[in-house]
């Protein structure tokens, strides 16, 4: 795939993961700010809350999309950093495949958890 399309996908996943990660972080960590905004989220890490989200199709879709965009964005960034280290050409090709395999494996593992709980 041409580099420009990979880079454009990086930009698209950047915007998407900004909104998705911001939602995720605010809900899970910034409960005082949410309270000021009138949202009572409670303890989002408690088992009851986790189970409630596990049973929701909306949250399942959220996590699947979030995982896909965040994994692509992060692993493409890592690829960029490692490819700047003057590796031999064969190593760069292997790096690409290794990152694809790691990405697919992490995605499969990470979506299995919410899907199995759904």
């Amino acid at each position: 795939m041409r580099e420009v399309y990979l880079k454009l996908l990086q930009y698209v996943t950047a915007v998407a993961s900004f909104f998705l990660l911001a939602t995720h972080l605010v809900l899970l960590h910034l409960d005082d700010i949410l309270r000021v905004l009138g949202v009572e989220a409670g303890d989002m890490t408690a088992w009851s809350s986790v189970s409630e989200r596990a049973a929701s199709a909306g949250w399942l879709a959220f996590y699947i999309v979030f995982l896909a965009v965040a994994l692509y964005h992060g692993l493409y960034g890592l690829r960029g950093i490692v490819s700047e280290l003057s590796l031999p050409p064969g190593a760069i090709r292997m790096l690409n495949w290794v990152l694809v395999i790691i990405g697919i494996a992490l995605f499969a593992y990470a979506v299995y958890i919410p899907i199995s709980a759904y």
Partner: peptide
């Protein structure tokens, strides 16, 4: 320039 060691680095 649109190559692995081109403009996107």
């Amino acid at each position: 320039v649109d190559s692995p060691h081109g403009v996107w680095l």
